[in-house]
């Protein structure tokens, strides 16, 4: 009898992430629609291996939120929550929009960093 151990495999991360999302929702730390959206995203990235979305999200998580990007963060969140992540066309549109927003966010972050460096110099 073969029992497959998922240790150290992406599926293990997937299960753990889904479990944490589920628990956070039960504890009231995530709203149902937020939990739903995050579950859709991990399905897309880990199970369906949508690497494009993964790279966009990687870029998004590279820098922490700052007051100057709060507004854009809210727009990204609202865009993700409003998208139908079951429809391929909707996913493609979402990726295009979020990518633009993330680039703008990165640009703001970089500009702030440059300004800070100028000030220090």
């Amino acid at each position: 009898m073969v029992i497959i151990d998922l240790k150290n495999r992406p599926e293990k991360w997937y299960t753990e992430l889904a479990r944490i999302i589920g628990v956070l929702q039960v504890k009231g730390r995530l709203k149902p629609e937020e939990a739903r959206c995050l579950l859709d995203i991990i399905d897309l990235v880990i199970i369906q291996q949508d690497l494009e979305l993964l790279h966009i999200l990687e870029e998004f998580t590279e820098y922490e939120s700052i007051p100057e990007t709060e507004e854009i963060d809210e727009i990204i969140k609202a865009t993700l929550l409003a998208a139908d992540l079951k429809q391929p066309e909707s996913i493609e549109q979402l990726k295009a929009v979020v990518q633009e927003l993330v680039r703008e966010r990165t640009r703001i972050q970089n500009k702030k960093r440059e300004d800070e460096n100028d000030y220090l110099v």
């Binding site: 029992i3 497959i4 151990d5 599926e11 889904a18 479990r19 589920g22 628990v23």
Partner: peptide, 20 residues
């Protein structure tokens, strides 16, 4: 459904230990 942390952890246990 699934109102407790234990229920979700039990489900995660099931999902992790699958058979062929």
């Amino acid at each position: 459904l699934f109102r407790t942390q234990q229920e979700i952890s039990e489900l995660a246990y099931i999902a992790e230990h699958f058979i062929e």
